[in-house]
Write a protein that binds this DNA or RNA. Structure first.
Lengths: 196, 196
DNA sequence: GGCTCATATGCGTCAATGTGCATATGAGCG
DNA sequence: CGCTCATATGCACATTGACGCATATGAGCC
């Protein structure tokens, strides 16, 4: 069980509908955890069956009625129990790493393209984290416990993205230095490799 | 499809049996990717059915016969095709992060215990990566493509563990500073909190 | 003789996840 | 009128993953 607990954790902030949760998993928590709305609705049903959350139907006109879910005392207890269990360190499991392991059996050009896309991706995310950090924690300190958790969370995210971005840069440089020997590097006109 | 490709990537090094692959996934690649022998055998069957690998039975006495799997040309092509597709950036998906997000709804002491365990874990892994790096790449440079891939791989692993370990340390410090206000911090005799 | 260990392969089940599809409606665009 | 978008919920199927169990045998230990 993992997604269920992540949902419980989200609902500690405020009651939410499945739709809102799906959006949350597309932004804040979603930076760390991907879950689409189908997964979330399925999990919500299970949590409701277990009595960890309670749904309150709100009748709407023009839109389908919505179900606002609230944590029950049982849900809070379950969350605390789950949080008291030792966490299992996750594996990295990045396709990039597998490709690096078989670097001499694959084509370099697509690998470079991919690394460049990934570099951009991780830089974007890093910038995003930094933006949120500056906005929510301008002086870099947190007041309450909740804030502290989110500050640490954002810091870890920022550092992680920074690290992976740096790694992509390094890998690209190393590949350039190496591919000069065996492969022609195709760049736009006017640009040239220092080593080419 | 992911594990299958990871297996193909492993088999570019040398032909292996399922048993050897399972051991590989418990050490080198296994630092990034967890897979037990059942998963591997199942995946090997699939890959064999697809013609990506070929099994050669070696009759043994005293032990069950073994099946040494070799990459077929089709398998190599499949690997290259897979490696030419853009990679999907993985999510972090660490229980610790979810707990941080709900920090004010959980118990702090088990959280501290967990962070300490994780700190040790990531430090161990970091030391392990550094050890392998020093052994395989004493001067920090790689010769061929294959070596380059593995050097980059190990570097990323080392940095990742370092970063997470640092993060655990920071989180513990922040928690200590904070818990002095609301919770009694139980430490060994002689130690005291600056803020307590 | 029974115990576990290492070698070597595999099945079955269930939870977790990923992907596609279905339903319902008002609002805005062409 | 048909098209897509945003809101809001959900089912069905396939894959992936985690966990336990089964089989077979030589070697070493008590």
């Amino acid at each position: 069980m993992a997604l269920g607990d992540a949902i419980l954790a989200c609902l500690t902030e405020r009651p939410m509908t499945g739709y809102e949760l799906a959006k949350t998993f597309d932004s804040s928590i979603g930076f760390f955890w991907k879950a689409d709305h189908q997964q979330i609705y399925r999990e919500l049903s299970k949590l409701r069956d277990r009595g960890h959350i309670q749904g309150r139907e709100v009748v709407q006109t023009g839109k389908p009625n919505k179900l606002i879910y609230t944590l029950t005392p049982e849900g809070r207890t379950a969350l605390r129990h789950w949080a008291a269990r030792p966490s299992t360190p996750p594996s990295i499991k990045d396709d990039l790493l597998v490709r690096l392991h078989a670097l001499d059996s694959i084509d370099i050009e697509p690998m470079r393209t991919d690394l460049m896309a990934r570099l951009e991706h991780h830089r974007d995310r890093h910038a995003n984290y930094e933006r949120i950090l500056k906005k929510r924690f301008p002086d870099g300190t947190a007041e309450g416990r909740l804030d502290l958790g989110n500050l640490l969370l954002l810091r870890l995210g920022a550092r992680h993205e920074q690290m992976v971005a740096d790694f992509c840069e390094e890998a690209l440089e190393a590949l350039s230095a190496m591919s000069g020997k065996s492969t022609v590097v195709t760049l736009e006109d006017g640009k040239r490799e220092g080593k080419g």
